[in-house]
């Protein structure tokens, strides 16, 4: 109990030190406000940012792009994973290709997406979908492939049909891995869309961050960053705890 308290104190102290250093560095003018604006300037910028209409339209563009990209990635990834695992042979043929491609930064190919789909949202949808496809497909393959041979044999010996085997054995064993793939895929989609917007686009959150940097409006850039980070971290927290519940209940049963 005291150990947990001490740990929590250290974590809070760490955040306090970071915040204090930020305040101290800026108020003493040790760093240029161009690189690091004072906390209060960022706070004002955030409060001004979130009440303005352009903020919500940029957020709307980005969320719509992410939703489309993720939707495509999920459908394509799960379907491809399911298709490949229909046979062990094709799993062995395709899994290394997909895994190998995923170790190459797909960002390399971003200029091709711009070439094919233009500078609008289409190129970001395609880029996010392709990047998100990989972890989802790989985890679907791993999940469907990890069903324990013993359980499959037991189900067969008890006379389970192939549909019953899928429903009662393959799916429950794949579930935790599948959920991880869907979470990782989402955050890769999210980051890809934001990155794509920052690299080359006409609208969206990523574009606004890059624009603020180009205009050297640091407070505004920090405001955007703070908003995005808060959103991403809390979303990650929610999704991870859902996933932990799914996997913990499985781990408890293993």
């Amino acid at each position: 109990m005291t150990g947990a308290f001490a740990q929590r104190s250290i974590q809070i102290a760490f955040l306090g030190v970071v915040g204090g250093a930020w305040w101290l560095l800026t108020s003493s003018h040790a760093v240029s406000p161009l690189f690091l604006p004072p906390p209060e300037a960022v706070y004002t910028a955030v409060s001004r940012l979130v009440v303005a209409a352009p903020f919500w339209s940029a957020v709307g563009v980005t969320l719509a792009t992410i939703a489309k990209a993720y939707g495509i990635a999920v459908v394509a990834g799960v379907f491809a994973g399911w298709l490949v695992t229909r046979s062990k042979f094709w799993t062995e043929v395709f899994e290394p290709i997909i895994a190998g491609l995923f170790t190459i930064p797909i960002t390399l190919f971003f200029p091709m997406f711009i070439l094919f789909f233009g500078i609008g949202a289409g190129s970001k949808v395609a880029y996010g979908a392709v990047y998100g496809f990989f972890p989802i497909a790989l985890n679907t393959i791993a999940g469907l492939g990890r069903a324990d041979e013993r359980y499959l044999r037991a189900a067969r010996s008890m006379g389970a049909s192939s549909l019953e085997t899928f429903r009662h054995v393959l799916l429950p064993s794949a579930f935790p891995v599948l959920v991880t793939g869907l979470r990782v895929g989402f955050f890769i989609c999210f980051a890809s869309v934001l990155g794509g917007e920052a690299l080359s686009s006409i609208a969206g959150v990523g574009r606004n961050i890059a624009l603020a940097a180009e205009l050297m409006d640091s407070a505004r850039m920090y405001a955007w960053i703070v908003v995005v980070i808060c959103f991403a971290v809390s979303l990650n927290f929610v999704m991870t705890s859902i996933e932990n519940r799914a996997t913990a209940s499985e781990a408890a049963r293993r």
Partner: peptide, 20 residues
């Protein structure tokens, strides 16, 4: 082909499905 109407199996390790 298994004959679940006539034959039941008990395997080496527990094959109780851990998710049920």
């Amino acid at each position: 082909a298994p004959r679940p109407d006539e034959i039941a199996f008990v395997f080496q390790e527990s094959t109780l499905f851990p998710w049920y």
